[in-house]
Amino acid sequence: MRLWGLAEEDRIVEGKEGALILPKTSCDCKTELFDEITALPLAGEALSCDGCGVCTASCPVAEIITGFNPRSFIKTLEAGALDEVQKTAELLWRCVSCQACTHRCPRGVFVEDFLKAAVKVLRRKGLMEKSPAELFDELFTAEVLEYGKVEPVELIFSWLELQGYRVVRDPLLRKPLPFAGEIPPEIKKLVLKPLKGLRLSFVALNAVRLLVHPRSRNWGRVKHVLRKALGEV
């Protein structure tokens, strides 16, 4: 039970009939949303946040995207001000997981973990759309679940395909053919780079890998347990 803030019954609400009604109070001691987030692993440390702003000042995304502000995300979610939370939802997923915030937070908050936990809860509650970041997490995790290992080139092409690029795959093994199709020019350039350096052995080895996806030993059994774990938090 949280002792600060004001409960809903204590809130002052003002406004003409038919007009947008915003509560005059921005805090609420019924903090289901925040409680749900902070119940997730590592996210609970956010209870210690004193709003100092070190996380935001350390954040490279905050420098680029106006409004991306980890400190304010924490405090907005803590206050449970739903109108503000909605604005937050559009930005929240843009965290690049660089850990600078967690690295420096003087209160020991796992800021990055908190943000990811917040995304999870907002999604669960239908307060947020599925973001591209989540889509990629799923794609990545699915490949790990299937094989135990990730094949970076294949991952790139699967992602591009998901984004609507026309990736050409060989008809037999359904493997992407890096030199055909329409892919972003800088990616094409990167993939072709070894060819330019005439490192044929390198290219050949990678091609083999593309054909036979690397796989961890005993993965069939591990997969089973991993799938179960994925279903839990």
């Binding site: 709003g51 100092c52 702003g53 070190v54 935001t56 000042a57 350390s58 954040c59 905050a62 420098e63 502000n69 400190r71 304010s72």
Partner: peptide, 12 residues
Amino acid sequence: LKFEDTLLGRPS
């Protein structure tokens, strides 16, 4: 100095 002016909500 790198900091956030938390009253403005602005990294500065």
